[in-house]
Design a binder for these strands. Sequence first.
DNA 1: GCTGAAAATTCCCTTGA
DNA 2: TCAAGGGAATTTTCAGC
Lengths: 151, 151
Amino acid sequence: MLDEIDRVLVTRLQGDATQSYATLGEAVGLSAGSAHERVRKLRERGVIRRTTIDVDPASVSRGVLAFVMLGADAWMGDAATRDALTAIPEIQEAHIIAGTASALVKVRTATTEDLQALLRRLFAIDGVTSTQTIVVLESFFERPIDVDPGR
Amino acid sequence: MLDEIDRVLVTRLQGDATQSYATLGEAVGLSAGSAHERVRKLRERGVIRRTTIDVDPASVSRGVLAFVMLGADAWMGDAATRDALTAIPEIQEAHIIAGTASALVKVRTATTEDLQALLRRLFAIDGVTSTQTIVVLESFFERPIDVDPGR
DNA sequence: GCTGAAAATTCCCTTGA
DNA sequence: TCAAGGGAATTTTCAGC
């Protein structure tokens, strides 16, 4: 379990992972060294999986966002399906789901034409029998997981 | 537009934003100073929006993932709806969509009971007339946007 | 968890292609 | 316009307590 200090550290790092441990420590009433030790342990425990950057999709030709639900006539939770989906770079997320469809993928393409080409590729995957595409008109927000600091 | 070097830098930072500029520069055949200057400009231009950490959802009591499609009898792309969705911490993403539903939200809760409570809150939002919930059984992957280095 | 010091890195500025 | 180089200032990192 995380204590209050851990949660504050995680929340602050989600907002800006470039800040110094001195700044971080000051925010939670610890020395830089102790803050560093806390964060090191959070990484070690796998709570913090990695430090990464947030890229603006439009800047890298990924301005079109859509979610595609895949229907299938076979179980899609196997390694072959996973590999097939992993090999498609436009797919940002892939999930096996409960309900009428079998899988849900989040995709980003440069244009709607590219989206169409992508759907063709998805249809070609073994077991896929249908697709239902949800095109995003506007994203209100995409934000880090809330870790409840101060609750 | 990004050139080849920029794309490699971005891809490497997506994988690990803690590496030094010396390491980064070596990977693209630049000095540490020049690599730093490149990255600084990518931030300035907004290509890199921020440096952040990836948190393991299960470690922070967000082990249940679901997507909820919201049907509505009024336009949901307004500020009031945005504010209402923003105020719910379990919502990680909120999008206005084309098609039969009006909005799609990605939510993470600790338990399915919490998911149920969340659905109640979503129903209470002005204009919302229906919800369709897609529960994720297994996530194959959630990865950074592909920026096509070397293509 | 703190302090303090050594090592490494960042970051700015100047020069040059 | 872009990269290299120098060097000061900051930050990280690792002792010992």
